[in-house]
Amino acid sequence: MMHERPILAIEGLSKSYPTGFWRKPVRVLSDLSCEVRENEIVGFLGPNGAGKTTTIKILNRLAFPDAGKVTLFGGRVRDGADVRRRIGFMPEQPYFYEYLTGGEFLRLCGQLCGMSPSKTESRSLELLAKVGLSMARGTAIRKYSKGMMQRLGLAQALLHDPELVILDEPMSGLDPMGRMEVRGIIRDLKAAGKTVFFSSHILSDVEALCDRVIMLHKGRKVAEGRVEELIGAETLYIELVVSPGLSADRLAAAEIPPEAGFAQGALLVLRAPDSGQANRWIAGLLREGCTVLSCVPVKKNLEEIFMERIENPSATGAAS
């Protein structure tokens, strides 16, 4: 079911932090507007200090903006406790009461969310298993490793079965297995009809998971759009794989400059700058009696788009 209004809408958000008594405050967010729609996975990207955590804090009312507005659940839900009950939040480098065990902490969270003790118990068992902490349920959090804290942070965010899950760097500090598991959990959330908004530095995860991404740089939005659109807009080159490999003079006969190709074992790999060129080359190659094994347009990955947008933020093609 698609709602006309987004589940999370940010309009013109600005935030400055005071730096000292005399100096002028530093601008952390400038006029940020973006939205997250129901049942989407949205990635929130940006280099260190871009303002991701600040935005996420504002969403959770841990900080207050100087200007701008945040509308949650399309304003359908009365602000305050009701909204919070529908949101799960995992802070950056989550920290818990050291004197509690993992199980005790989740029990406290359940109480604060107004869950019944039996519901809390069954949910926490389920979630601890899901994040791989079943064996650490009775261990004092003081003895948890960094990755275990991160996992517990995810468990507490999901305990009350929230509709919107906001995660600040959920993959940081996790081992490759843990990252895989978290990816799986995020996918499961989407499958269960939930909405996920998370910040990350791990672009391959974002590319693999997200429906849309929002890129932030120095507190400004530099890109927003569907992953395919951001990537699809720009083709780097077309890669042809040809068999058998050709000598330099036969390449010249096929009207292909020798620097366009390189040998890869018995095969020849060619990079054509565009599809017209690729087609002319294919014609030449066929005349020379070669077989074209594959012809693939190579697109930029998110990482390259990210670097580009940050270096040249004026080219804000906020495809959306």
């Binding site: 919070r84 939040f89 989550p94 920290y95």
Partner: peptide, 14 residues
């Protein structure tokens, strides 16, 4: 300081 308050106040706690 320990940021434990982040989690508490992100729950339905005023």
């Amino acid at each position: 300081d320990r940021k434990t308050i982040y989690i508490i106040l992100s729950k339905p706690v005023r």
